[in-house]
Design a protein around this nucleic acid. Structure first.
Length: 708
DNA sequence: TATTCAATAT
DNA sequence: TATATTGAAT
């Protein structure tokens, strides 16, 4: 297997995977490490199990996979395994003993996989997949679906079932070399709820960046590898025969219904699996359409907010001329991100720019409009556009606007030597920072905001020109407008729009015109440093881009004081869903703020020791989940840049869920009739006022508050 | 090789 | 439908 072939067997997101290798036999340790490194994995080695544990204790999220020799002279294996199992770190055990009972014991003790020594290069081809398994779900599935089958198997064969069951192991064939092997690829797709790719706070960016269609489980196998949909009984028998004939390096799978710890797994080296057929394209197509074929879809990379900000920061540094995939990639310094992905994103970005240019001005509508026009563009953008949601904004590109308090993203250089010199290329957030939640499903859908317009000419930097349109209540659906009708005509005609020179300029070929200097327009100065200069910036960029804490998160939008009265505050970190109220007597910084965790769907331990941050209105609150965190959290307000009074009584209520429902399923929102119209908007707002502002605000404030 | 365009997959 | 991936042309 050539080195390229080796590497290509590891999908992008799994490259550089942190693996901890534990083996008291030095030679074997070094050798195995070298093998793993050939697959791009980052290997840390130790000969002492106790040292391994202390490393894990130091940072339990560091290693995604632990491979250890079954023999541990310095400590007893069960204790070692116990720690790993509790921390849910996948563990693979190795042994040079070839007895079945040894492997069986390893698996029964909780190992996720068993490797026979000497380990061959080929054996490690799919080892990365273990780092992405969700074992709990596996077991659930086994229990539900396989027990009966196994019982039948046992009773009919009168023996313990061996070999593969497709529920347990996916089969991968590689048309390139005609070989095939079974792997555990299926495991990453086994969660019946499709939530198997749960993002944990410690998850790597690459996990986070890969998404799957919820209704179809993705196949995390490289595209040139075709997954066999099923291994039939015959195959299993054949595999078993092969094994009995003394095939080496076979990963056996054993079942023991009584022992829930037991894993059943099988892996076959290529020479043992030549009986797998390679599907013709037609067969593959048939198989793809088969609903039983669970793993037919590939994961798609996710451009999170964080990544997109890096991307835009890189664009800013580079300027248009050097804005090429390779350089952008270099500046972004995101391991395992590929040029092609950057190129693709750039292509999409350019398309967006072009589209804006064609229209001249786009409006980032207020959310109110989208509720008004439930069946219209704003709503459909939210629902149908994967850009906003997949990018992790939790709200749409085109409805993310707001007359907001300016919270500079901490990864953009609004401080330091390059302050103000960067161009904001973020089409979606020209004027505000949407904090990275690091999590999916954290969308807080409500933005009671005014609209924001972006005016743009031909080039990237034109997107800096953000014009705030106060009290601009309607959105104009960009796509809904016929081309040639420029600039956009707003429904209420209340906003004057500069008629930009939006000739069909090729934005890549032009210098920045930078001609718009209206007082209500933000203008960033544009710098287009030469590439060599640019590269000198990388250190700065690096510093700027490296978040002080990887696990920090913030609310996914910022709000004005005015909006604070309308917007529920809710953050989600890991498993925790935290809500709280600013106290009535809230005055200034360093004030204790009680935050109550409203919802902890999973073990709260998963958020312990992780930092959290709420950026809401004028307040910027952060802290760390205490190690004894259970469900109550006391938070300290760390930073109140503006009048603290504005955050008083920041009520955080349950209606966020209602709004979420509205977002997700407007059809269910039928309280006011069926046809959305302006009257309905009014009624909606009335409801919104009552819900959000209660009786404490006067009508005018309410109007302001809801602004629709 | 890097980039871009455009078809295709999700 | 929008976006990500991929083949193919440059």
């Amino acid at each position: 297997m050539g080195s390229d072939e080796l590497i290509s067997s590891v999908p992008n997101f799994a490259r550089g995977l942190d693996i901890l290798l534990v083996d008291h036999e030095t030679a074997s340790l070094t050798y195995l490490a070298s093998l793993l490194e050939q697959y791009t994995f980052k290997v840390t080695t130790t000969e002492v199990a106790a040292v391994a544990l202390s490393m894990i204790h130091e940072d339990e999220h560091r290693f995604r996979l632990v491979i250890a020799n079954m023999k541990m002279p310095d400590m007893d294996r069960p204790s070692f395994l116990d720690v790993l199992l509790k921390k849910k770190i996948p563990i693979i055990l190795m042994s040079s003993e070839k007895r079945l009972s040894v492997a069986e014991r390893a698996l029964s003790e909780g190992a996720w996989y068993f490797l026979e020594k000497p380990v061959l290069l080929e054996d490690l081809k799919y080892i990365w997949q273990h780092a992405y398994r969700k074992r709990k779900d596996l077991r659930k599935e086994f229990q539900k679906e396989n027990i009966e089958r196994e019982v039948n198997l046992i009773s009919s064969k009168g023996q313990s079932p061996q070999g593969i069951e497709m529920k347990e192991a996916g089969c991968v064939t590689s048309p390139a070399n005609g070989n095939a092997s079974c792997d555990i690829g299926q495991q990453v797709t086994m969660d019946p709820k499709g939530k198997n790719w749960e993002i944990e706070p410690e998850a790597s960016m690459f996990e986070e960046n890969y998404v799957r269609e919820p209704q179809h489980e993705a196949n995390f196998v490289e595209e040139n590898q075709v997954r066999e949909p099923q291994c039939n009984c015959k195959d299993r028998m054949k595999i078993s025969e092969d094994h009995q004939q003394g095939g080496t390096n076979m990963l056996r799978s054993y079942s023991n219904i009584e022992d829930k710890q037991q894993e059943r797994r099988a892996k076959f080296s290529s020479e043992q699996t030549s009986f797998f057929t390679i599907k013709t394209p037609e067969e593959q197509e048939t198989q793809r359409k088969d609903s039983n074929y669970r793993s037919s879809k590939k994961a798609r990379f996710l451009w999170t907010t964080e990544l997109h900000l890096k991307f835009t920061a890189a664009l800013s540094l580079l300027g248009d001329k050097q804005a090429r995939p390779k350089t952008i990639l270099k500046l972004m310094k995101v391991p395992n991100l590929t040029i092609r992905q950057v190129a693709s994103h750039l292509q999409k970005y350019k398309t967006q720019v072009q589209r804006i240019n064609e229209v001249g001005t786009i409006n980032l509508p207020s959310v109110s409009k989208s509720y008004y026009d439930r069946t219209g563009m704003a709503q459909s953008l939210e629902k149908q556009s994967s850009f906003p949601s997949q990018l992790g904004y939790g709200s749409s590109y085109f409805r993310s606007g707001g007359n907001t308090t300016q919270f500079a993203p901490n990864i953009l250089p609004n401080q330091g030597p390059y302050a103000g010199n960067l161009v904001n290329h973020d089409l979606r957030n020209p004027n505000q920072y949407f904090g990275y939640t690091g999590l999916s499903g954290n969308s807080n859908p409500y933005h009671a905001t005014n609209g924001v317009q972006i005016q743009s000419n031909a080039e990237f930097q034109m997107l800096n020109q953000v014009r705030e349109a106060n009290n601009f209540p309607y959105d104009v659906s960009m796509n809904g407008n016929e081309k040639g009708k420029q600039p956009l005509e707003f429904e209420d005609g209340s906003v004057q729009v500069s008629n930009l020179d939006s000739q069909n300029l090729s934005y890549m070929n032009l210098d920045a015109p930078s001609t718009y200097n209206s007082e209500d327009m933000f203008q960033f100065s544009n710098v287009t440093p030469e590439l060599n200069q640019t590269l000198d910036f990388t250190q700065e960029l690096d510093a700027l881009l490296s978040s002080p804490n990887q696990n920090q998160f913030s609310m996914d939008y910022t709000v004005t004081a005015k909006e604070l009265e309308c917007v529920p505050g809710q953050i989600t970190s890991g498993d925790a869903n935290i809500q709280g109220n600013f106290p009535e007597d809230f005055t200034n910084e360093s004030q204790q703020l009680e935050v109550t965790v409203g919802h902890v769907p999973q073990a709260s331990s998963s958020v312990q020791n992780h930092s959290w941050q709420i950026t809401s209105g004028d307040a910027d609150i952060q802290g760390i989940f205490p190690t004894d965190f259970t469900n109550e959290l006391e938070a300290t307000v760390g930073h109140v840049p503006q009048a603290s009074s504005s955050v008083q009584n920041y009520s955080q209520t349950e209606y966020s869920d209602l709004l979420k429902v509205l977002e997700e399923d407007p059809e269910e929102f039928n309280a006011f009739g069926s046809e959305p119209d302006l009257g309905e908007v009014d009624r909606y707002c009335e409801w919104l006022r009552n819900t959000m502002c209660g009786n404490t605000t006067g009508p005018e404030q309410l109007d302001e508050c809801c602004n629709s």
